[in-house]
Design a protein around this nucleic acid. Structure first.
Length: 900
RNA sequence: GGGAGCUUAGCUCAGUUGGUUCAGAGCAUCUCGUUUACACCGAGAGGGUCGGCGGUUCGAGCCCGUCAGUUCCCACCA
């Protein structure tokens, strides 16, 4: 026995082989005359670390790219990161705060210097981590959305879209993130249902009705009560609205109400928008702090009074509670309203509140000046591409949601009030005139030409302070990584674009995927990728999304350390069909690790064999056992089994059923190769194996490792290299992916029957408490002469038989226990007591069932409507079933008769 | 409020045009096992009226209707 570790130790080999792959530049791709196969990585946040979602996602990409590479395609997997402006800027701000520096104390350039420092320090950690997973990216192509070329791409596209009239600047109600202090797009807002308080506040009506003087000199005050979840914004109210048909308030039309606490007068207006049966039927209209109210405000020409600062605190326009945070103010004002007798009641109320995707702060609707991209026309080709399957979504169920979004897209708010990102290339002249150009020099040139202002200098132009949404750079990713925006006709873009597969999460289908398709058509006139594989979300046992804040996620690197990269890869893939969430369980990676170990031990077994080199070794082996060599048939059987599996795996891959492909491989290796094939051809204790069988086995092993390599790159490389005894400059990474040969279906069926026989004999041992060590004699009475001869040796070996006797059909009673498989009869002559009655009962039960089965088939065949309507082949099958049942019944009856 | 999907063994899922192989797989469970690759193992076994009800059909896990449960997307009535 060679000194090979009894268990597979991934740590010993993973680093070694990854370095070998890098040293030999096996992942490097440059355009050539082969067919390209391209994947661009969904760029992770540059400051991010690897989480379970990345593991799943990147494993799938690596499986696809490795398989394509082995199939002879020019495989190119482009890695990279994106600058994630809000998230990164927030981290940089936090870092500065620790150093006692406020962002406001810095100039833009100073801040950016810190941001770059941060990026260089923490950036790309995730890309290093991907190497541990085995990701076969072309690292020379690593891109970053803030690097010069990609920055320029974004600027170029902005200028172009502006010139095409697709980009405009305007005052709109946007989603304001008071923590990030920036606008965010609609897509970056998550709605959550929250328990809130619905506060009923009464506003005095002015002027008081007829100023009827009462005897005690007091004035009777009339009120209108409204319900709101945001009492802290009453100071920004511009009106109170009621439904014009609401009888309760008809007398108030045209009157005025007085805002409590600050005593400002506002009109009472009427609008059909107001629902009569919600709350009191009275609605406070606050145009600055609610989208619908803003619309109402525009319609009724109401003033906009914004009482909030950018950070969510109240400003001086609020008059009261100035400087207080909106949530603190909400509590405070309820108290004040109560004290001033304006609070009618407070009800518990559930409603949806928007939260920022990036900071999780409650979104504040805010009126501000932002840049927008008109999506309506741009979306059209992108919608069509997916509906026509030019871009195929996997699984296709996402087409529906994609369509609903793309049929009526919102304009995209692309400006962000941040510094970390591509600064908007808009330049303002002193009078406010906007000039959009790639840089200041160009802007100056345009200004001079267009407005004949030859005295204008660069100092007269100021650039927009804002940057662009990160997705505004990500959406160009499949083009910009190949410099296809800046140099639209270069060799890379022409060769690699459109890419093949995109693997990403459904959560960013709209954020990112849809927009890439839009950009693809706008800038290349072509889809950016052919297939979009949508992974699920990795969840914990309780069904919760794995997240850092919940602390329910294992560290992927720990997992790799513990189970090996191949074990983790296969573990993640065992249970993750496209579009389905992956309920993570450590059992999965254990199974993956066990799978690796199984393969490893099969390798140990084969490497441990002594091969006889004598010319007649083959014969010697035969003679030794005294029966015809069965290895030949076993080899032929595995040949067919292997081919059938390859066909199945290819079929699964063609449908992007990666888990199913892996499962087929798993069963091929574990069941067919290890449990069956190796056990069948395994030589006896301390016996050598004949060279022919050995060579065939090595060849199978070679093919199996190649078939498995996309899933488990490290262990397969190690074994493959060992099998070939370290031939220089070779790697399984670029070895041929196995192809299917012919499948001998008859052979597969016959072997299945032989295996069934073996199982039956094993069961017999179990039920009779006979040790597997005791050899048993078997007699076979087959309908087809010679049917089991080719399998005799292996049946004898695997069932541990003393010998096999063939009995002709018409022969006399054969002693021993009998059983029937597919119409053939088998007898095991067991020494000792046999419970004849029990055996008879068992067979009688089988007979009864078969009789019942035959009846049901007969019933079907005697049904005129069935015979008239069913397809001929269906009827033929039923006839065959009947014949089989008849044969079985005959055999069973004979067997039972023998007991008597 | 609008739309889409899902519901098959304890768990995670396959079941392509209704008809041998249609009730399956992996894991888990149970029984047995110190067999000379592997206990990260081997040999076996049990387990589901395919969510409920109704319909179409000679025939339904598959088609239609309906109800229930569940998930997601869109909208956001304060």
């Amino acid at each position: 026995m060679l000194m090979i570790s009894k268990t597979y130790n991934p740590k010993d080999i993973e680093g070694k082989w990854y370095q070998y792959w890098l040293d030999n530049q096996l992942f490097k791709s440059t355009p050539d005359n082969r067919e390209p196969y391209t994947i661009v990585i969904p760029p992770p946040n540059v400051t991010g670390v690897l989480h379970m979602g990345h593991m799943l996602n990147n494993t799938i990409q690596d499986v696809l790219i490795r398989k394509a590479r082995m199939e002879g395609k020019n495989a190119c997997w482009v890695p990279g990161t994106d600058h994630a402006s809000i998230a990164t800027e927030a981290k940089v701000v936090a870092m500065l705060k620790e150093r006692g520096i406020a962002k406001t104390d810095l100039t833009r350039d100073e801040f950016l210097a810190y941001a770059w420092e941060w990026t260089h320090k923490y950036g790309g950690i995730i890309l290093q981590q991907l190497r541990k997973l085995g990701a076969s990216c072309d690292w020379d192509r690593t891109r970053f959305t803030m690097e010069p070329n990609l920055y320029d791409s974004v600027i170029t596209v902005f200028v172009d879209l502006y010139n095409k009239g697709k980009i405009y600047r305007g005052v709109r109600m946007v989603n304001w993130d008071p923590q990030g202090k920036t606008a965010v797009s609609d897509e970056e807002v998550n709605m959550k249902e929250v328990q809130q308080k619905l506060v009923y506040i009464r506003y005095a009506i002015s002027p008081f009705p007829s100023f009827k003087e009462r005897s005690d000199d007091s004035v009777e005050v009339e009120y209108i009560t409204i319900a709101t979840t945001r009492p802290e914004t009453i100071m920004a109210d511009a009106a109170i609205a009621v439904n014009p048909n609401d009888e309760r308030y008809k007398h108030l039309h045209g009157r005025k109400a007085i805002i409590p606490l600050i005593n400002r007068e506002i009109p009472i207006i009427t609008d059909e928008y107001v629902t009569m049966d919600f709350g009191t039927g009275g609605l406070k209209v606050t145009p600055a702090h609610d989208r619908n109210d803003y619309e109402l405000g525009v319609k009724h020409r109401l003033p906009v009074i914004d009482i909030l600062n950018d950070d969510g605190t109240l400003n001086e326009k609020a008059q009261i509670l100035v400087g207080m945070d909106r949530f603190a103010a909400r509590k405070a004002i309820i108290k004040q309203l109560e004290e001033s007798d304006h609070l009618v009641k407070v009800e518990e109320y559930k409603s949806n509140v928007g939260y920022s995707e990036r900071t999780n702060a409650v979104i504040e609707p805010k009126l501000s000046l932002q840049w927008f991209l008109q999506m309506e026309d741009l979306a059209k080709p992108a919608l069509k591409a997916v509906m026509d399957d030019v871009v195929q979504l996997v699984p296709p169920k996402f087409k529906n949601t994609y369509r609903s979004w793309m049929e009526n897209p919102h304009d995209w708010c692309i400006s962000r009030q941040l510094w970390w990102g591509q600064q908007i290339p808009a330049f303002y002249m002193k009078d406010g005139t906007i000039i959009v150009a790639k840089d200041k020099r160009e802007a100056l040139r345009i200004a001079r030409d267009k407005y004949q202002l030859f005295a204008l200098s660069e100092t007269d132009l100021t650039q927009d302070e804002d940057v662009l949404d990160t997705w505004f750079s990500s959406w160009l990713w499949p083009i910009s990584v190949f410099d296809g925006i800046v140099k639209p006709d270069n060799a890379d873009i022409n060769y690699y674009y459109p890419t093949n597969d995109l693997v990403t999460a459904p959560e960013i289908l709209f954020f990112w995927v849809a927009r890439m398709i839009v950009a693809g058509y706008e800038y290349r006139g072509q889809e950016p990728f052919r297939n979009v594989y949508l992974t699920g979300i990795v969840r914990d046992k309780l069904g919760r999304k794995m997240s850092k804040s919940l602390g329910n996620s294992p560290d992927p690197l720990d997992l790799i350390e513990q189970f090996g990269a191949d074990g983790v890869r296969t573990g993640m893939l065992f249970s993750s069909p496209a579009g389905n969430d992956l309920p993570y369980d450590e059992k999965l990676v254990e199974q993956g690790r066990n799978f690796c170990n199984k393969l490893w031990n099969a390798f140990r077994l084969v490497k441990g064999w002594q091969v006889t080199e004598e010319a007649n070794a083959y014969k010697t082996y035969e003679t030794l056992l005294g029966i015809p060599n069965s290895s030949a048939v076993v080899i032929r059987w595995f040949e067919s089994t292997f081919s059938a599996a390859v066909l199945e795996i290819q079929d699964h891959f063609s449908k992007y059923r990666i888990s199913d492909a892996l499962m087929t491989l798993y069963k091929l290796i574990w069941d067919d190769f290890c449990s069956q094939y190796l056990e069948m051809i395994k030589p006896g204790f301390e016996q050598p194996i004949d060279a022919e069988t050995y060579n065939a086995t090595i060849d199978f092993f070679d093919r199996l490792t190649r078939l498995a390599h996309p899933f488990m790159p490290f262990i397969t490389e190690e074994i493959w290299q060992e099998l070939r005894e370290h031939t220089e400059d070779e790697s399984i990474c670029v070895a041929d992916y196995p192809k299917a040969g012919a499948v001998d279906a008859q052979l597969l069926t016959d072997m299945a029957t032989a295996l069934e026989l073996i199982t039956s004999i094993r069961n017999l041992r179990g039920s009779k408490q006979i040790s597997p060590k005791v050899e048993l004699p078997l007699a076979i009475k087959s309908q087809i002469t010679g049917r089991f001869e080719p399998f005799a040796q292996l049946i004898q070996k695997l069932a541990n038989l003393s010998g096999i006797e063939y009995v002709s059909i018409g022969a006399d009673a054969t002693p021993g226990l009998s059983f029937v498989i597919k119409g053939d009869e088998f007898y095991v002559n067991i020494v000792g007591e046999i419970d004849v009655e029990q055996e008879r009962a068992t067979q009688q039960k089988e007979l009864d069932y078969t009789l019942g089965f035959r009846d049901s088939v007969l019933k079907k065949l005697s049904n005129e409507k069935f015979v008239a309507n069913a397809k001929p082949d269906v009827i033929e099958r039923e006839r065959q079933k009947l014949a089989d049942a008849d044969a079985k019944i005959k055999t069973l009856q004979e067997a039972i008769a023998r007991f008597v």
